[in-house]
Computed example of a mutant assay.
Amino acid sequence: MARDVQITFDCADPAALAAFWADALGYRVQGPPSGFESWDEALEAMGVPPERRNDASAVLDPEGTGPRLFFQRVPEGKRAKNRVHLDVRAAPGLTGDARMAALEAEAERLVSRGATRLGRFEPAPPLDAGHIVLADPEGNEFCLD
């Protein structure tokens, strides 16, 4: 039986990191529970103190096919290279120079929104079509491929 998957990020600022990934993936920030106009209103009704209202956030695929990304505040910062990372498919169906140009355009867009560029890997056929490595605003590595 196939199972749904949620990808969880430990981070310092769940709301900001959720906004970055929603933009990067074309997702949307998960809305508040039914009956509430905003998360602040919902959390107030739940008795969550103001200093705890950015403890978590999530983003959803608007088409409902991709995994939910969950962001939870933790006290410690990132310490080492990720052992698991996301590959963001930014150039589907493209090859060669057209592929790398599309990846560069997306890399520039994400850098303007807080990502850091870490490296570019040129195509090395037949197994590697080329990719660009970035880090999100909290240093989590991901690839544009």
Rank of each mutant, 00 (worst) to 15 (best):
D13I: 00
A42S: 14
M46R: 08
S112T: 02
R99E: 10
A105T: 10
A107F: 10
A45I: 05
E51P: 04
I132E: 13
A19D: 15
N82M: 07
F9P: 06
P67D: 10
A42Y: 15
A98M: 03
A101M: 03
G35N: 06
V74D: 01
M100I: 06
H85I: 11
K81H: 12
W21N: 05
G47R: 07
K78V: 09
D128K: 01
A102T: 01
R3P: 01
R99T: 09
A22C: 07
D10K: 10
D40P: 02
P62Q: 08
L94A: 14
L86I: 14
A2P: 14
D10V: 04
E141L: 09
Q6L: 12
D97M: 03
A124H: 12
P67L: 10
D87Y: 03
A42I: 06
H131D: 12
R120W: 02
D13W: 01
A45S: 15
F71G: 08
E63M: 07
D136F: 03
P92G: 01
A107T: 06
T8W: 05
H131I: 03
A24C: 15
G64P: 14
A135R: 05
A115N: 06
T8V: 14
R73Y: 11
G114E: 00
E76L: 08
F36P: 04
K78G: 13
M100Q: 12
L103H: 10
F70V: 14
L86T: 03
G77W: 03
R68A: 11
R89F: 15
K81D: 11
G93I: 09
H85Y: 14
G119I: 06
G26N: 08
F9G: 08
V74N: 00
S38A: 11
D97L: 06
A90P: 04
P67V: 07
R53V: 01
N54K: 01
V59R: 00
M100D: 06
A2Q: 09
S112Q: 04
A18F: 14
E76M: 08
L110M: 10
S112A: 12
E108S: 13
G119L: 09
A135E: 09
S57I: 01
D23W: 08
A58G: 13
A22K: 06
T116C: 08
G114K: 00
I7K: 04
R109L: 06
T65V: 11
R68M: 15
P92E: 00
R3T: 12
G114R: 00
D136N: 05
T116Y: 04
G96L: 03
N54M: 02
Q30W: 12
E106Y: 02
E122A: 15
D23K: 12
V133H: 05
A98F: 04
D97Y: 00
A91L: 09
P125W: 06
C11F: 05
F70W: 14
V133Y: 07
T116H: 11
K78E: 08
P49G: 01
A16K: 15
P123S: 02
L43S: 01
W39N: 04
T116R: 15
W21Q: 05
L94R: 09
F121I: 13
P49C: 02
R99F: 10
Q72I: 13
P92C: 03
D128Q: 06
R83S: 13
